[in-house]
Simulated assay, not measured.
Amino acid sequence: MSTYQVVLIDKPRDWTPRSSDDLPLEAGVPRGELGEFPQLFAAFRHAAEYNEQSRSKNGTQWAVVVEKGAVGKIWQGMRICTPLEYKIAAIWWPMGWEPDSPLDVPRCVCKAQGAIQEEVMTYRRAIAVMEALNRQAMDGVGNMWYVIVAVEHEPISRTITYDPAGLQTSVEIRRIHVVQPVGSAGFGDCSHCPARAMDCAWLTESLNESGSMCP
Protein backbone atom coordinates (compact mmCIF):
# COMPACT_ATOMS: atom_id res chain seq x y z
CA MET A 1 0.00 0.00 0.00
CA SER A 2 1.30 3.44 -0.94
CA THR A 3 2.34 5.93 1.72
CA TYR A 4 2.25 9.58 0.73
CA GLN A 5 4.57 12.04 2.40
CA VAL A 6 4.63 15.84 2.40
CA VAL A 7 8.19 17.14 2.24
CA LEU A 8 9.58 20.68 2.28
CA ILE A 9 11.96 22.21 -0.23
CA ASP A 10 13.57 25.64 -0.49
CA LYS A 11 11.40 27.92 -2.64
CA PRO A 12 13.44 29.61 -5.41
CA ARG A 13 13.52 33.38 -5.00
CA ASP A 14 12.45 34.26 -8.55
CA TRP A 15 9.89 31.47 -8.90
CA THR A 16 6.16 32.26 -9.10
CA PRO A 17 4.01 29.15 -8.57
CA ARG A 18 1.04 28.73 -10.91
CA SER A 19 -0.96 26.76 -8.36
CA SER A 20 -0.80 25.61 -4.75
CA ASP A 21 0.72 22.27 -5.81
CA ASP A 22 3.15 23.55 -8.46
CA LEU A 23 6.77 22.37 -8.62
CA PRO A 24 9.79 24.51 -9.54
CA LEU A 25 12.01 23.31 -12.38
CA GLU A 26 14.93 23.18 -9.96
CA ALA A 27 13.39 21.48 -6.95
CA GLY A 28 16.59 21.15 -4.95
CA VAL A 29 16.52 18.52 -2.20
CA PRO A 30 14.00 17.83 0.59
CA ARG A 31 14.72 19.83 3.75
CA GLY A 32 12.11 18.40 6.08
CA GLU A 33 8.83 16.52 6.43
CA LEU A 34 5.32 17.69 7.33
CA GLY A 35 3.64 14.29 7.68
CA GLU A 36 2.63 10.96 6.17
CA PHE A 37 -0.80 10.02 4.81
CA PRO A 38 -2.43 6.83 3.47
CA GLN A 39 -4.28 8.69 0.67
CA LEU A 40 -3.03 11.10 -1.95
CA PHE A 41 -5.64 13.82 -1.45
CA ALA A 42 -5.14 13.96 2.31
CA ALA A 43 -1.48 14.71 1.61
CA PHE A 44 -2.45 17.09 -1.20
CA ARG A 45 -4.70 19.17 1.07
CA HIS A 46 -2.02 19.36 3.76
CA ALA A 47 0.61 20.50 1.25
CA ALA A 48 -1.73 22.97 -0.46
CA GLU A 49 -2.71 24.59 2.84
CA TYR A 50 0.95 24.98 3.77
CA ASN A 51 1.80 26.46 0.36
CA GLU A 52 -1.06 28.96 0.49
CA GLN A 53 0.26 30.20 3.83
CA SER A 54 3.78 30.27 2.41
CA ARG A 55 2.63 32.39 -0.53
CA SER A 56 0.68 34.83 1.64
CA LYS A 57 3.56 35.29 4.08
CA ASN A 58 6.39 35.22 1.50
CA GLY A 59 7.73 32.04 3.07
CA THR A 60 10.99 30.48 1.99
CA GLN A 61 9.83 26.85 1.84
CA TRP A 62 7.38 24.93 -0.35
CA ALA A 63 5.56 21.63 0.23
CA VAL A 64 5.64 18.75 -2.24
CA VAL A 65 3.76 15.43 -2.10
CA VAL A 66 5.84 12.30 -2.72
CA GLU A 67 5.34 8.56 -2.51
CA LYS A 68 7.69 7.28 0.15
CA GLY A 69 9.98 4.40 -0.78
CA ALA A 70 9.20 4.57 -4.51
CA VAL A 71 11.59 5.07 -7.41
CA GLY A 72 11.52 8.60 -8.82
CA LYS A 73 13.38 10.60 -11.43
CA ILE A 74 14.71 13.37 -9.18
CA TRP A 75 14.94 12.28 -5.54
CA GLN A 76 16.26 9.00 -4.24
CA GLY A 77 13.75 6.82 -2.40
CA MET A 78 10.71 8.93 -3.26
CA ARG A 79 8.52 9.61 -6.29
CA ILE A 80 7.16 13.13 -6.79
CA CYS A 81 3.35 13.14 -7.08
CA THR A 82 2.53 16.84 -7.41
CA PRO A 83 1.58 18.85 -9.36
CA LEU A 84 -1.45 16.77 -10.31
CA GLU A 85 -2.90 16.70 -13.81
CA TYR A 86 -6.68 16.52 -14.23
CA LYS A 87 -8.43 14.76 -17.08
CA ILE A 88 -11.94 13.62 -17.95
CA ALA A 89 -12.75 9.90 -18.21
CA ALA A 90 -15.86 8.39 -19.77
CA ILE A 91 -17.33 5.40 -17.92
CA TRP A 92 -20.29 3.15 -18.66
CA TRP A 93 -23.47 4.31 -16.94
CA PRO A 94 -23.94 1.72 -14.16
CA MET A 95 -27.03 -0.48 -14.46
CA GLY A 96 -29.80 0.64 -12.11
CA TRP A 97 -27.95 3.81 -11.07
CA GLU A 98 -29.46 7.29 -11.32
CA PRO A 99 -27.59 10.55 -10.61
CA ASP A 100 -28.99 13.29 -8.40
CA SER A 101 -26.62 15.89 -9.86
CA PRO A 102 -24.20 16.11 -12.81
CA LEU A 103 -21.27 15.99 -10.37
CA ASP A 104 -22.26 12.68 -8.78
CA VAL A 105 -19.79 9.81 -8.93
CA PRO A 106 -21.20 6.26 -8.70
CA ARG A 107 -19.77 4.09 -5.94
CA CYS A 108 -19.07 1.27 -8.38
CA VAL A 109 -16.87 3.32 -10.71
CA CYS A 110 -13.79 1.38 -11.73
CA LYS A 111 -10.49 2.87 -12.85
CA ALA A 112 -10.38 0.46 -15.80
CA GLN A 113 -13.91 1.12 -17.05
CA GLY A 114 -13.53 4.03 -19.41
CA ALA A 115 -11.37 5.94 -21.84
CA ILE A 116 -9.40 8.91 -20.48
CA GLN A 117 -9.25 12.03 -22.64
CA GLU A 118 -5.78 13.36 -23.41
CA GLU A 119 -6.51 17.01 -22.63
CA VAL A 120 -4.96 18.19 -19.36
CA MET A 121 -7.11 20.66 -17.41
CA THR A 122 -7.05 22.70 -14.27
CA TYR A 123 -9.25 21.29 -11.53
CA ARG A 124 -11.85 24.03 -11.90
CA ARG A 125 -12.07 23.52 -15.67
CA ALA A 126 -12.39 19.75 -15.16
CA ILE A 127 -15.32 20.39 -12.80
CA ALA A 128 -17.00 22.60 -15.41
CA VAL A 129 -16.48 20.07 -18.21
CA MET A 130 -17.71 17.16 -16.09
CA GLU A 131 -20.82 19.11 -15.13
CA ALA A 132 -21.59 20.12 -18.72
CA LEU A 133 -21.10 16.64 -20.18
CA ASN A 134 -23.13 14.92 -17.47
CA ARG A 135 -25.93 17.47 -17.68
CA GLN A 136 -26.24 16.58 -21.36
CA ALA A 137 -26.23 12.88 -20.44
CA MET A 138 -29.00 13.44 -17.88
CA ASP A 139 -31.12 15.43 -20.34
CA GLY A 140 -30.68 12.96 -23.20
CA VAL A 141 -30.47 9.22 -23.62
CA GLY A 142 -26.94 7.91 -23.31
CA ASN A 143 -24.94 5.09 -21.79
CA MET A 144 -21.87 7.07 -20.71
CA TRP A 145 -21.09 9.10 -17.59
CA TYR A 146 -18.06 11.32 -17.01
CA VAL A 147 -15.72 11.58 -14.03
CA ILE A 148 -12.51 13.43 -13.19
CA VAL A 149 -9.25 11.59 -12.76
CA ALA A 150 -6.13 13.04 -11.15
CA VAL A 151 -2.83 11.85 -12.61
CA GLU A 152 0.29 11.84 -10.43
CA HIS A 153 3.32 13.78 -11.67
CA GLU A 154 6.10 11.21 -11.95
CA PRO A 155 5.41 7.80 -13.51
CA ILE A 156 5.59 4.58 -11.52
CA SER A 157 7.77 3.10 -14.25
CA ARG A 158 9.14 4.03 -17.67
CA THR A 159 10.34 1.63 -20.34
CA ILE A 160 12.25 2.66 -23.48
CA THR A 161 12.79 0.27 -26.39
CA TYR A 162 14.48 0.63 -29.78
CA ASP A 163 13.70 -1.29 -32.95
CA PRO A 164 16.11 -2.14 -35.82
CA ALA A 165 14.83 0.83 -37.83
CA GLY A 166 16.12 3.17 -35.13
CA LEU A 167 12.72 4.11 -33.75
CA GLN A 168 12.32 4.68 -30.02
CA THR A 169 9.20 3.65 -28.08
CA SER A 170 8.58 4.95 -24.56
CA VAL A 171 5.93 3.49 -22.25
CA GLU A 172 5.10 5.22 -18.96
CA ILE A 173 2.84 3.83 -16.26
CA ARG A 174 1.22 6.47 -14.06
CA ARG A 175 -1.07 6.17 -11.06
CA ILE A 176 -4.48 7.82 -11.40
CA HIS A 177 -7.18 8.63 -8.85
CA VAL A 178 -10.90 8.98 -9.53
CA VAL A 179 -12.04 12.23 -7.92
CA GLN A 180 -15.30 12.83 -6.11
CA PRO A 181 -15.90 16.59 -5.81
CA VAL A 182 -16.78 17.55 -2.25
CA GLY A 183 -19.69 19.77 -1.30
CA SER A 184 -21.78 19.75 -4.47
CA ALA A 185 -21.70 16.07 -5.38
CA GLY A 186 -22.81 12.73 -4.04
CA PHE A 187 -23.00 9.09 -5.03
CA GLY A 188 -26.32 9.14 -6.85
CA ASP A 189 -29.22 6.74 -6.32
CA CYS A 190 -28.24 3.05 -6.18
CA SER A 191 -31.63 1.78 -4.97
CA HIS A 192 -32.35 0.00 -8.27
CA CYS A 193 -28.90 -1.54 -8.69
CA PRO A 194 -29.17 -5.32 -9.20
CA ALA A 195 -26.09 -5.81 -6.99
CA ARG A 196 -27.13 -3.39 -4.22
CA ALA A 197 -26.87 -6.13 -1.56
CA MET A 198 -23.13 -6.43 -2.24
CA ASP A 199 -20.32 -4.15 -1.09
CA CYS A 200 -19.29 -1.52 -3.65
CA ALA A 201 -15.77 -1.36 -5.03
CA TRP A 202 -15.38 2.27 -3.92
CA LEU A 203 -12.26 3.58 -5.64
CA THR A 204 -12.64 7.35 -5.51
CA GLU A 205 -11.08 9.93 -3.23
CA SER A 206 -12.54 13.24 -2.12
CA LEU A 207 -10.88 16.46 -3.18
CA ASN A 208 -11.96 19.71 -1.57
CA GLU A 209 -13.07 22.14 -4.27
CA SER A 210 -13.53 25.17 -2.04
CA GLY A 211 -11.13 27.98 -1.30
CA SER A 212 -7.74 28.37 -2.91
CA MET A 213 -6.38 24.89 -2.34
CA CYS A 214 -7.40 23.71 -5.79
CA PRO A 215 -5.07 24.34 -8.72
Rank of each mutant, 00 (worst) to 15 (best):
E98W: 14
Y86V: 07
G114Q: 04
Q117R: 12
I127F: 15
N143R: 01
E119I: 14
K111G: 14
A150E: 09
V141G: 08
A126H: 12
R124H: 14
V147K: 01
C110H: 03
V141I: 07
L103A: 04
T82I: 14
I148R: 01
A132W: 15
I88P: 02
M121G: 03
E85I: 13
W92K: 00
V141F: 14
L133A: 11
N143P: 02
R107E: 15
I127V: 12
V151W: 11
P102D: 06
V151L: 11
E98N: 08
T82A: 09
R135D: 12
G114L: 12
P106G: 04
W97F: 05
W92Y: 07
G114F: 11
S101R: 00
A112M: 11
C81M: 13
M138E: 06
C81R: 08
R135W: 11
M95H: 06
E131I: 05
W92N: 00
G114M: 12
V129E: 10
Q113W: 14
L133K: 02
A115V: 14
W145Q: 02
Y146E: 05
M130V: 11
P102G: 06
C108I: 14
N143G: 07
I148Q: 06
E152F: 14
A128G: 03
G96W: 09
I80A: 08
L103S: 02
P94W: 07
M144A: 12
I127G: 00
W92P: 00
D100E: 10
W145D: 03
R107P: 09
R107I: 14
I116Y: 10
V109E: 06
P106V: 05
P83V: 15
A90D: 08
M144D: 06
A132C: 09
I127D: 02
A137Q: 03
E98K: 10
G142K: 00
W97C: 00
A132P: 03
E131V: 09
V149A: 12
Q117F: 13
A90Q: 05
N134T: 02
T82K: 05
P94D: 01
P102I: 04
T122C: 08
R125L: 13
I88V: 10
A89Y: 03
L103G: 02
T82C: 07
R125W: 15
V105L: 10
A115K: 04
W92M: 00
S101K: 01
E152Q: 06
C108Y: 08
E152W: 03
T122G: 11
S101T: 10
A132M: 13
W145I: 05
V120F: 14
S101Y: 04
R79A: 14
E119L: 13
P83C: 06
